[in-house]
């Protein structure tokens, strides 16, 4: 079975049946037009039409803080490398965020491998959700070629009014369908509706910036000494919101913490950001990206240039979170436009 059908009335059954067995997380409203992935027991709180959540689903794959090592100093210093993980279903992931998860997969499976990430990732079932229309004006998913489903999920839902067409992509996805017993067969008329929606979608989603996808890498290559970075230097307040909300940023800091008994302790990692003061500081005190503009450029280059050479893939997913959250109104699409104008 490649495609299945779920009547909208049955979404609640699907979610609550899954939630009886394992943790289910899905986008819920946080008020003020903001959303976040939270644990749900049924579908009542799930918001199908949402702009990208404050934090991307990255937080389940690479938690904000996670233990790497536990030790006991009293018994001749014993230690153990650990991973904290949990079986769960991640429901309602947009195509931009699916791309983000793929970026993280690549970064962490590159040798030397990061088993904390790789073990945890395989505990999570992913249910994607299609965007039939733009979420808001910040998105650039079409430019990044992430507006249509492109793998990276177990099931993929497309909302077609009274029902969802569900693409069954993996054995695990099929098991979720078998287990919950709320799906029906999708017949040709349903598939036609899907095709019609996709056709309409092609008309809606256009390159958000006037540049060809393939031209992005050369553009950034040419922009090493661009004045645009000086401009960002003046504006950026180094709050690091852009990197913390980015689905493909994965920099971290490692810290030891001893309990008050001064015997038991752990080593943990926590999200860090190249935008933070002191991120590239060495023990002698020298900081290698002292100016905020240099740090912003580094962020852009980690999305549009460096990963192309290494992984043949952009690490920008087009989700628009960095622009949406920037305290100083730094807008990714505008930055790219400025670079284009400057080079023209």
């Amino acid at each position: 079975m490649q495609y299945a059908l779920l009547k909208k009335d049955h979404l609640n059954d699907f979610i609550s049946k899954l939630a009886q067995e394992q943790k289910v997380v899905a986008p819920v409203s946080r008020g003020f037009g903001q959303f976040s992935f939270e644990e749900v027991a049924d579908a009542s709180r799930i918001i199908l039409k949402h702009i990208p959540t404050i934090l991307p689903p990255k937080k389940y794959f690479m938690p904000q803080e996670e233990t790497l090592l536990e030790y006991n100093l009293s018994e001749g210093q014993s230690m153990e490398a650990v991973v904290e993980c949990q079986k769960m279903v991640l429901f309602g992931v947009h195509t931009c965020d699916l791309a983000g998860i793929q970026c993280l997969n690549i970064a962490f499976s590159e040798r030397p491998k990061d088993f904390n990430y790789l073990i945890r990732k395989n505990k999570i079932a992913i249910v994607g959700l299609e965007c039939n229309d733009y979420c808001d004006e910040y998105a650039s998913c079409s430019l990044m070629d992430n507006h249509f489903p492109n793998g990276g999920y177990d099931l993929f839902f497309t909302d077609l009014g009274d029902f969802f067409i569900v693409h069954v992509n993996t054995q695990l996805g099929d098991e979720l369908i078998e287990k919950t017993k709320v799906f029906e067969r999708a017949d040709k008329s349903h598939m036609d509706t899907l095709a019609k929606m996709r056709e309409k979608k092609r008309g809606i989603f256009k390159n958000e910036v006037d540049i060809d996808h393939q031209e992005l890498e050369p553009l950034f290559k040419k922009s090493q000494n661009s004045k645009v970075w000086d401009e960002l230097n003046k504006r950026c307040v180094a709050c690091a919101n852009c990197t913390n909300v980015c689905p493909s940023c994965y920099c971290f800091d490692v810290t030891d913490e001893l309990q008050l008994d001064l015997k038991h302790g752990k080593r943990y990692r926590r999200w860090d950001s190249c935008q933070n003061e002191g991120f590239a500081k060495v023990s002698g005190g020298e900081s290698f990206r002292e100016k905020r503009g240099e740090r912003q450029k580094h962020r852009y280059y980690r999305k549009f240039l460096y990963p192309m050479a290494k992984f043949a893939r952009f690490f920008c997913t087009g989700c628009g979170r960095c622009s949406r959250t920037c305290m100083a109104k730094i807008n990714l699409k505008e930055t790219i436009r400025s670079l284009i104008t400057e080079k023209a």
């Binding site: 590159e110 030397p112 971290f252 800091d253 860090d272 190249c274 590239a280 060495v282 002698g284 280059y301």
Partner: peptide
Amino acid sequence: LERHMKCGLGKCGHCQIEN
């Protein structure tokens, strides 16, 4: 070159010089 290599595994980002 001296940088703060925190993880040693090419992941944490602290020691990155361009690419």
